[in-house]
């Protein structure tokens, strides 16, 4: 069970980014990062982060909408930290290092982009209500 708010954040962000439980070192590094270089949050940021943590199934939508809007966002800043930490874990190296893909992978990418567009639109609507 998560023992600190940062651990909970790390677990939620890690699950979202990896579709799997993040390893203990990633969680520990995220907690250290948040203690060493805290992310400044406005009240709006805090509301969004609280909602995203309580409804982690919506995280992909909110993340997509915030990324598209290009406005500064504490949630995205925190997720950038988690992404950087995951990228420097040997266990996840293959998720970030380029891999040889079959020609059909482009079609899969197309579907994924359609999904991303859908999530973005849904996230935009969600943000109106948060």
């Amino acid at each position: 069970m998560s023992s600190s708010p940062f651990e909970k954040e790390a677990a939620v962000f890690g699950r979202y980014l990896l579709r799997d439980e993040p390893n203990a070192q990633s969680v520990q590094l995220y907690v250290s990062a948040m203690q060493i270089r805290p992310v400044n949050c406005t009240m709006r940021d805090e509301k969004i982060i609280r909602f995203a943590l309580q409804n982690s199934g919506c995280l992909a939508m909110i993340d997509g909408a915030l990324a598209f809007s290009k406005r500064p966002s504490a949630l995205r800043e925190k997720m950038l930290v988690m992404t950087a930490i995951l990228e420097t874990q040997p266990a996840y190296a293959n998720l970030f290092l380029p891999q040889q893909r079959a020609a059909g992978y482009r079609i899969l990418m197309g579907f994924r982009l359609c999904g991303a567009a859908f999530r973005l639109l849904a996230g935009k609507m969600l943000l109106v209500f948060i």
């Binding site: 979202y16 980014l17 579709r19 992909a60 939508m61 993340d63 997509g64 990324a67 598209f68 290009k70 995205r76 997720m79 950038l80 992404t83 998720l95 970030f96 290092l97 380029p98 891999q99 893909r101 992978y105 990418m109 994924r112 982009l113 999904g115 991303a116 999530r119 973005l120 996230g123």
Partner: peptide, 13 residues
């Protein structure tokens, strides 16, 4: 301009 998970899959490719 995509969420981190989608962006990671796209950029990896």
């Amino acid at each position: 301009p995509l969420g981190f998970r989608d962006a990671r899959m796209l950029m990896n490719y």
